[in-house]
Every structure is written in C-alpha cells, then in structure tokens.
Write a protein that binds this DNA or RNA. Structure first.
Lengths: 343, 343
DNA sequence: TTGAAAGCGGTACCAG
DNA sequence: CTGGTACCGCTTTCAA
C-alpha cells in the first residue's frame, strides 16, 4: 500500500477511485498516527496555497477588523485562510508586506491600505496576482477610465457619506461649517472632502470655513490640533458652529478641543465623525457619524478574490456600497445668537 | 551558470562562496526578471517557514492588537511573518485554526485565546510545535507544578491588577463593592476574581456584594445586565457603591446601567475596568482602569517563540509582567449618606 | 484498483 | 568557485 494510494484515499475528490477497504485502512492509519498532509508540499505541488493576502492600514481601527471578518466569513467555507498584515499607512511597509505575501504565493490579494501615490506599485502587483482594492482606490481609474481599467474594487460612497453628514448639519440650521480633512493621498478622504463641499455649495447661505490645514494622520491628536485652530483663529463671528471630521478619531479630538476652550459639544459646536467605530456611541457625547458597511465590503472583496479569475481574464468590477448616517448626541441646532448672526 | 550558483549568489549567507563577478550577474538578472524565490519551495526544502502562528481571542479588542504589534516588532527583524487568526473565544474555532496553522508548518505558535478547558488540546499541540501561551494560561501548571511543566508563558499579574483596583476603591472609602466577573474558564478572570477577593478580605469592614451571576461574554451588554441586577435587587442599603468590572467593556455596560437607573457615575456608583482599551479615556466618564503591558507581552512572547528551542529541549519559562492602575473620572468617594451608613 | 515515477522550485552536498 | 544531483512531501499521470 503506497503513498499514491494514500494520497487518493485521503483526498475527498479522488477517494472514489480507491477500494473502500483500503481506503478505510488508510483513513484509520492516518487517524492513528495523527497524520496531517503538509500544506507546504501540497502548495508546491498544486501551485496554489489556499490563502488570500489581506493588507489593511491599521488593525487598531475596528473598522478594518470588520472588513477582515467579512473576508473570513466568505473565505472559510472555501478552505481559504486570510493572511492579515497591516501597513500603518506607510507605503514602504505596504511594498514590503505585499512582496512578502507574493513570495509566499498567496492565491489572491485584498488591499485596503493604498494611498493614491501607491498606484504604480499596485498596478505592478495586479499583473502578478489577482488583486482587489477594498475601501480605498485611485482616482479616475474606474471602469473605462484610463489604462488600468481591469481593476476590481469594492468601495463605499465617500462623497455621499460626506454629503449626508453635511446635509444633516445644514438641516439643523448651521451656516458656518468646517471640515477636518484627512490625508489627501487617501481616496476616501478625497471623496469625503468633495461630497462635503458639494453639499455646502448646494445650500444657499451656508459657507465652508475650514482651514487649509490637513491632518497628517487621522488621529485624535490631529483632530484636536486643527479644531483648536478653527475655534481660536479669526474673529469669533467667522468661527464654525459645526465640524465634519473625516473620521471618528479626529471627531473625538475636535470634541476635546471644544471642551478645552470652555465651549461645549453640541451646544456650542456640533461635531460629526465618519466610520461609526465601536465604542464611539459611548463617547462624551455619543458621536453622530456615518456608518459604512465594512463587513459587507469584506465579503464582497473576498467573493471577487476567490472567484478564480486571474489577473488577465478578469473583468473590471466596481462595487459601490452605500453609507448610512447615524444620529447621536454630538449634533444639534447652533446657538440662537449665532444662528441669527449668520442669517 | 546554473541554478545552484544562482541560489548561492542570492543567499546572503552563502554569497561569499561565489565569484563577485558571477554574483553581480546573477543579482542583475534576478532584478531584471523580477525574480522572487518561491517561499513555498524554500519552506519545503528548508523545513522551516519563517512564520509564527498568532492566535488571539478577538481582534476587535484593541488589547490584542497591541499584543500582535509587539510580536511583529520582535519578529520582523528576524524575517519572520506573524500569521494572525482569531477564535472569537470559541474552542472549536481554536482547534480548527491551530490545526490549520500546523498544517501550514508554522515554526512556532503564540496562543492568547486559551480557555482552561483547552488544556488537553494545547498540551497536544505543545508536543508538535514550540508554543508560547500569552496572557492566558491554565491553573496550577507553572514551573514545577504538574506534568506539563515544560510550558512557556508570558503573563501579566491579574491578581495583582485586581488587587490594586480594589484597593483603590477601598481607599476612596467604599465599603460595599461588587465585581463583574468574566468567563471563569479564562485564567485571566480567575486571577482577577481572586485578587479582588483577597483585597476585600484584607480590608476590615469592607464587604463583597457581588451576585454569583457571571458574564457569558465580556461585553457591554453583559456588563449592563449584571450591573442592573446588582443595583436593583435587594434592599438599597446592600447595594454596591463601587463596581470592579473584569474588563473595560463590561465597565462601560455597568456605567450604562447606572445611567439608566437614574443614578450617576461616579457620584452614586464608582466603576473600574481592566485593560485600558484605546478610546476608553474618551468614555463618559473617562474610565479608571488597569493598564496591562500588552505590547511588551507580545514582544516577550515572540522572543521566546523565536528562541529556537524546540518543544523537547525547551526549558519552562513563566514571564510575569506587572499591570498599572490608571485613575480617571469614573471613581470617587462614595456618597456621604451611604458612607455613614456603611461605617 | 494500485504501484511506479516524475516533478513542483528551491537548497546543499559532493565532485571537479 | 561552479556544475551535477538528490531530495523536501505531495499529487497525478501512466502502466500494470
């Protein structure tokens, strides 16, 4: 009884070709000896590893964890294991980890960590391994636009999310609003900025009083720093009564700044975030924010990744999911005196 | 010029054995063709994968993310890639993912997801691959205790953390204190419970008024549920003026319960958590909690994992790190009337 | 239905 | 210093 037979007996797809008796014997032996096929050898022989690389910007951002779980939910029934790595939003790290994943012969790759400046690198990668962009993409490279139109991506509509956030503030009566912009090399923040400005432009009498100071990192500290500038500089009558932060962390920082200046949120300044991070509903005050369907984005990404199209044969896809506004307590109508002044 | 030579030229450890000229030529060709050694083939040949399996209970718990980053920091300089998976605290999932990791021939394994009931399984795994237990362990299996005393583990002192938390409350004048216990099959919670009870026992006039209701999962919802029982059942004069929750999430739930009952934290009820999760300092109110050095635990774990001892030759190690109390605004002296009543 | 053997892509030993 | 070759563990084709 030899190795070929054993291999067949243990492989469900081939075990029909082997005598039930021998098969039973093989199975029994395997169980007794605790035999586990060496996945490394299988990978080498089969040319496939049953793994999918998952590159996220920041594991500490619970948003990405949901994305990973969506991927895992789709991948597991296929026996595919996600290999998760983070980049800390650093391009060098991105290149390093993706290179390593490819050396490890992942079957496909899901990237949710790209900066727009990473386009050339990602384009090169797409030629090597089936790749899906999740959440973040590059501008003007959708289906039919530009040379890299074989790209497959799963996004949520940042512009729309920002628009509904801004419209919420406008609807409450705010007339001077500012945004706290995240890194402009990240497509999400570009989209949010655009949607916000569109909503402002569409509302008569409402003006954008943002600074041109952009957050280096999308953290509490940066949100706090920029919000302080907004609330301290210039004549009081030009200061915003509402702030749209490009993510929840910066929103938290903005609230800190409001508090520290002896003002309060939402009475003096309303604040909106983006992401609906876990625990953010327990912030002081509970944050109004934009919820995006990260788990679903993960699932769709994995579905595309596992669909077996290789980089050559794949048809371009852009799946766009819709965010949703969550009203909590960090937003309300502006103070009456300011509202009158603004009208 | 043939494959063996190329292999040597590309391997830093052997490239000395090859003529600098040929070597340069090889390197140049490799670069031009974008050659990357197939890590799968290398692994098969070398019998080593340069990967470490990292099994955590819950990626959404930022505590584990810090652990992972500590591991990564130690592993990267060695060219070792962490393979991260989560179990959602489910034993079946634990067995499934660990089995998969072993099939993939990880060089070592770090487990931070074990329940005490997983002891037999983990013991079996330890015979197959060098294994480190991080944060969670089994009881009475330290060096010299019991048959499995080759175990290597990196822990923090849960009993001490709980003790300093309880002593903080006692020092503020609380006399009726309750704990919100987490899953008793998880060693961390056993240790915390023990430390808490020791501190109470050591303080004359202070009594433990906990229910015997234990959280099924260490979540906000469970914390809220049990805290409600504590604050609603029995005569008012027996209710706790302070609650020690076994983790931050349950503490948040307890604060929710306090609010919902028309009481307030910390004026009526003080609440302490455990872990010092990110954002917890922005909760309402900012939570007093026990901070544990998760990053350091990760680093130590990885150091042991990479130390090259195989399961046979390894010497048992237990590294115990010290937690630290963080005072914020969720704790204060008990209300005067209750304090008098209790005295 | 089973055995024999080739080969996945490297590495390392040995001979030259 | 370089070329030839065996082999890591498994799958699969081909023959028997």
């Amino acid at each position: 009884m030899h190795v070929g037979t054993a291999s067949r007996a243990l492989n469900p797809a081939q075990s029909g070709l082997v005598n039930p008796a021998t098969r039973a014997r093989v199975v029994e032996c395997a169980a007794r000896l605790g035999y586990r096929p060496n996945a490394v050898a299988q990978s080498l022989r089969n040319g496939t590893t049953s793994t999918v690389g998952v590159v996220v910007a920041d594991l500490a951002n619970p948003y990405f964890v949901q994305l990973i779980r969506g991927i895992e939910a789709e991948a597991r029934p296929h026996g595919v294991m996600p290999l998760v790595v983070e980049t800390h939003d650093d391009s060098e790290t991105l290149e390093r980890v993706v290179t390593r994943l490819i050396a490890n012969r992942i079957d496909s790759l899901i990237v949710s960590a790209a900066h727009m400046t990473d386009e050339p690198f990602i384009a090169a990668i797409e030629a090597q391994v089936p790749t899906i962009l999740a959440v973040r993409t590059f501008l003007d490279t959708g289906p039919g636009k530009g040379v890299t139109d074989r790209r497959r991506e799963v996004l949520q509509d940042d512009a729309q999310g920002a628009r509904i956030a801004a419209e919420h503030l406008i609807g409450l009566g705010h007339r001077r609003i500012a945004q706290l912009r995240g890194d402009p090399t990240i497509s999400s923040f570009v989209g949010r900025s655009r949607g916000y400005l569109e909503a402002i432009a569409a509302a008569p009498g409402v003006c954008d009083v943002s600074t041109d100071d952009i957050a280096g990192t999308s953290t509490i500290a940066e949100g706090r720093r920029i919000a302080r500038r907004l609330l301290v500089e210039g004549p009081a009558r030009d200061r915003p009564t509402a702030i749209f932060a490009h993510n929840d962390l910066m929103a938290l920082g903005a609230i800190d700044a409001v508090d520290e200046l002896g003002l309060s949120c939402p009475e003096d300044v309303s604040v909106v975030g983006y992401n609906d991070a876990p625990l953010i509903d327990h912030a002081a005050p509970p944050l109004s924010t934009v919820r995006l369907p990260s788990w679903e984005i993960g699932r769709h990404s994995a579905r595309l990744a596992l669909s077996g199209d290789d980089a050559e044969s794949s048809v371009p896809v852009r799946i766009m999911l819709t965010p949703e506004f969550v009203v909590r307590s960090s937003t309300t109508a502006p103070p009456a005196r300011l509202r009158d002044a603004g009208a």
